[in-house]
């Protein structure tokens, strides 16, 4: 259990990295790339507007003009799925960033300082672990009034304990390593020890965690949309689309399956990348 990350022979390692990257992970990176592209240029590519009603056409199955068919209001499912990418990335990215900041600050502080601070932070983390997060969100949003922003904030609070626990654990481990103790004995200021020595060593872990958090946040936000608690009705959000089209399974299954499939594919890609990063770190002698 010595070190997290090594450095030299980097070129050799990079070559090994390419060779040893599993196909699934490579595909996941590719898929995320496509999503980013769609988020940026989707509106230019989508054949129809996300909300453009086509009442004359009504409900259709996939055909030449509407690749995934239309929903009961005649909206093009294909275009709406493309527009949905932005919602699918925006909320989770906010949550991931928020949890990253909170998790790293609290985790580093609790892990390095220890004592009362650590005890209270960990008490809070334990509590949050035992709580079924999404249900709490449902109750809170239900009672306080549905709002996307609120959903994001609540999910940041619910996600950050995962980061906090992981970061605190590795900080604690790094802190007791001789290289940190040597730095303390040499009189290096705490700032330098934390940010020059410890933080770079735990950064890969929080990075891996960010991918896992993204998957969790996407699933949670779509679930809220599905229940009608997140984003407003009629929005081209995957969860919302699925919720509005699930009764159309007989008439146009694609209207429900396309957004559902996108949620699963996106979350799976993120989870695969996150797991893979974790495994690579573990291979270098770190336990999860």
């Amino acid at each position: 259990m010595t070190t997290l990350v090594g450095g030299p022979r980097a070129r050799g390692r990079r070559r090994l990295l390419l060779r040893s990257t599993p196909l699934t992970v490579a595909l996941s990176f590719g898929f995320i790339g496509i999503l980013l592209f769609l988020a940026a240029f989707g509106p230019l590519l989508a054949p129809h507007g996300p909300g453009s009603l086509n009442l004359a056409t009504g409900l259709t199955t996939p055909n030449g003009e509407f690749w995934f068919g239309t929903d009961d209001l005649g909206r093009d499912v294909f275009s709406r799925t493309i527009y949905g990418v932005r919602y699918a990335l925006f909320g989770p990215v906010l949550i991931v960033v928020g949890a990253f900041v909170i998790g790293n600050v609290l985790g580093l502080a609790a892990g390095y300082r220890g004592g009362m601070l650590d005890a209270s932070v960990m008490r809070w983390v334990d509590l949050m672990y035992a709580v079924p997060g999404l249900l709490v969100t449902i109750v809170l949003i239900g009672v306080l009034g549905a709002s996307y922003l609120l959903a994001v904030v609540v999910l940041v609070v619910l996600t950050s304990p995962f980061d906090t626990r992981v970061i605190r654990g590795v900080t604690l481990e790094q802190r007791s390593l001789p290289y940190v103790e040597a730095a303390r004995t040499l009189g290096l200021p705490v700032r330098a020890i934390l940010f020059r020595h410890i933080f770079p060593n735990i950064l890969p872990i929080s990075f891996a965690n960010a991918f896992l958090n993204f998957a969790f946040s996407l699933v949670a936000l779509s679930a809220l949309s599905f229940l009608g608690l997140g984003i407003g009705p009629g929005t081209a959000d995957w969860g919302r689309m699925l919720s509005e089209s699930r009764l159309l399974l007989f008439e146009n299954p694609a209207a429900a399956l396309a957004p559902g499939g996108m949620i699963v594919l996106t979350a799976t890609s993120m989870n695969l990348i996150g797991d893979w990063l974790y495994d690579r770190l573990a291979d270098r002698g770190r336990a999860r």
């Binding site: 997290l4 090594g6 450095g7 001789p178 290289y179 040597a182 004995t185 020595h197 060593n201």
Partner: peptide, 21 residues
């Protein structure tokens, strides 16, 4: 004190920050 007493630890593998030259 720092300039008077220093310490060398047992495990040479974790005595150095793996990321720094």
């Amino acid at each position: 004190l720092r300039r008077t007493v220093q310490i060398v630890f047992q495990d040479p593998y974790s005595s150095l920050n793996p990321l720094r030259t």
